[in-house]
Computed example of a mutant assay.
Amino acid sequence: MSVTIKDVAKRANVAPSTVSRVISDSDKISEKTKQKVRKVMEEMNYHLNHNARVLVQKSTQTIGIVMKHSANRSLHNPFFPEVLRGMSSYCHKQNYSLLLTTGNSEEAIYQEVVNMVQGKRVDGVIVLYSKKEDKVVPFLQDCNIPFVVIGKPQGERSRIMFVDNDNTSAAKEAAMYLIQRGHKRISFIGDEPEYQVVQDRLAGYYEAMKEHNLVIREEYVQNLSQNVEETRNVIEKMMNIPEPPTAIISSADVNAILIMSALRELDYNVPKDISIISFNNTIISQLSNPSMTSVDIQTFQLGFEAAKCVIESIQDTNMFTKSVIIPTVIEERDSTGYNKKED
């Protein structure tokens, strides 16, 4: 016969309501009482019946996670496992689970979101991207379900809760870092231009270049799709123009690795011939050869704060819509150097 809350309360010599409050980690219960009740729960091998709790509280204790691509594709990028680790850390403290979309197309992902919300499979949603003409966020707004976006939202931002970096300032700082090291011919290579994060980083690059009256050649601004052959072709073409860049800003570590590999194949030395600074400061930036100077966007913290925002919104329906900006810092490594060439 399974152990009940009443059994635990009797053994701990407290009221059943006290046991319930300990389970929900209520601030109204002292830490001493919590420890005593939890010890009894462990001794009696008590396990919370989550299905019963869902029926009583009308809560799933689950947060839906909307990927911008299929899980298989997204998880190849070290950014996503790290942001999920941050979410999981906070959700675990609050006894929430995560439910990831797995669709292989934008429409399939959208339909999964519709199913999880209308099927009442989640209490709230975290959207891991921001882009124009996206159907997910307007749908979530219409449903009036708690949700948060990682990234700067499109449209009526005051009505949308989000967690982000100041990507424009971060990219401007990255460009300034190169300019201060004597680089004047600087390239910006993005990954997926339809996403707001890439647009913001490109804007920061433009700001820094214009402030210093530096020429922005059309060939210096490119976008890549994490394809080895495409990367080699783009880099080879760019390095063969009359005035090739002496430094590159990559909007993501994954692309930066491909860029570095292409430069090596073309007999360019990093950082002797050309410097590279990237974004996200994932594990691959530390393991690359040479190690990659990268803008640390604090990916874990982005995920942690997103989970915190959405769960707080679930628990307090009157909470004001808010935004959280996570600071960034440049982690200097071996892929950037001083430009000693004449420009």
Rank of each mutant, 00 (worst) to 15 (best):
I179D: 09
M209R: 07
G182L: 04
R333G: 02
E342D: 13
P153Q: 08
T321A: 12
S89F: 02
E133S: 15
G337L: 04
S105W: 10
R201T: 07
F300L: 14
Q118P: 01
A252I: 11
M1S: 14
L263K: 03
D296A: 14
Y110E: 09
R53Y: 05
Q141P: 00
V8W: 01
R11G: 06
R85V: 02
V136K: 01
E156R: 13
S285G: 07
I160D: 03
K152E: 09
L48G: 07
D296F: 10
I23L: 15
R121V: 00
K210M: 10
C143H: 11
I5W: 11
V19K: 01
E342A: 11
I283H: 13
K131Q: 15
V125D: 01
K237H: 10
G151V: 07
T18G: 03
F279S: 01
Y177E: 10
S70W: 12
V149F: 09
N51P: 02
D25W: 01
L214F: 08
K10A: 15
R217M: 09
V221Y: 06
I274M: 01
S105D: 07
I5H: 07
I248W: 00
L224I: 12
R159H: 04
V324N: 12
S74F: 05
I314K: 09
E229F: 09
H76G: 04
T168W: 03
N223H: 14
E31K: 15
C309I: 04
L214G: 01
V66H: 08
K152Y: 04
G204L: 09
L98E: 02
I109L: 09
I65G: 01
